[in-house]
Nucleic acid binder design. Structure first.
Lengths: 189, 189
DNA sequence: GGGTACATGTAATCAGTTACATGATTTA
DNA sequence: TAAATCATGTAACTGATTACATGTACCC
């Protein structure tokens, strides 16, 4: 009988474990709300996942489920000691270079040679606007978190978000101002 | 009979279409090589996808497949006129706010309250190192692309990558120097 | 008590990933 | 020509996403 190598859970599951560990027992719906206002900005999960994952995690003994007996009969999940151990193990684990920007705009820019210059500028402006809107959202959340000591870690990740959006805005403004071109002679006569 | 809404292809398919449009006919293996040296740094796709997707795309008339009759009998794909139209349509399409950083380190930082401060510093250092290594890789590629006018768009996306890595390094150094803490009184007596 | 928004759950589908299996080319 | 490496394809599985179906609470 082969010993099956211990594999990591999907990322969505760690988010669920982490939220239940830090925010206490919650329903899938509440988890979605929490994610939408925080983590979801840089790593989103579809709602259904938050119903499917906890079931699996409960079977694995990492969560405990309690179902309301009246009204909406919702499932309230809380993390078990084993679940806390697993999320701590994951947090301590040395990272294996997992960063993916997954920026559709950047992907499109990579294929910019298929567009004419005017459309590249158009793309750059759309992207700049998109990042400006997101920056505005972040600044609002930032104002709310700024003086809540309990939210120090949320605040730190948000700072990263703000820096990223500012950088993106500057980048796309650059692109709009001086769009790359694969023809040798774009500006000169 | 309901008219089915025209849905976007998965992102992997647009990458395949884009690469075939810009680099000419290729095998799945060649596509993987192309991706590994460019797009893969910010949006990676597993090798198998590059065998599965083209089959679907061929059925949809967006690609044409030609199979070698000798040797490895590999499948060489080339983009059709219809395929080119589709990738251009996608490029022109107004973006719908699709950016996800998917940074595991940032996710872990969000749950930093579950760690003790020393482990937060540890995490920050690991992340800083990771981004430093990636920056070094980018700088090397940058040197290669710098004076190749045909690669102007690849160069532009790379500039973004470099900016992002520099920002990340600064961010994680900050975190390592002054790790957030949820206890009210970390430094004072 | 009827309408509306909020909330919940599940089934079906599709994409993403791992694992397996094999073949071709190169080089010693 | 044997061994090593490079290359290719597919099947099985797991996770992610969409679509469907329904129920509860609230407000007027």
């Amino acid at each position: 009988m082969t010993m099956r190598e211990q594999r990591d859970l999907p990322t969505s599951s760690y988010v669920i474990l982490g939220l239940l560990a830090t925010c206490g027992p919650s329903t899938p719906y509440e988890l979605k709300k929490l994610i939408d206002g925080s983590i979801g900005y840089f790593w989103d999960f579809p709602r259904a996942q938050l119903y499917v994952d906890p079931e699996r995690l409960t079977q694995q003994g990492l969560l405990a489920e309690e179902r309301e007996t009246t009204g909406r009969r919702r499932r309230v999940y809380r993390i078990t000691a084993q679940g806390e151990a697993e999320v701590r193990r994951w947090l301590d684990e040395a990272a294996v270079a997992e960063v993916e920007m997954r920026d559709t705009g950047l992907l499109k820019l990579y294929f910019g040679s298929l567009l004419n210059p005017a459309d590249v500028v158009e793309l750059a402006r759309r992207e700049r606007d998109l990042h400006q809107r997101r920056l505005a959202t972040y600044e609002m959340i930032r104002a709310e978190l700024e003086h809540e000591p309990a939210q120090a870690f949320a605040f730190a990740t948000l700072r990263m978000g703000v820096a990223y959006e500012r950088m993106s805005i500057a980048f796309w403004e650059d692109v709009a101002k001086a769009p790359p071109t694969t023809t040798l002679d774009a500006a000169g006569s």
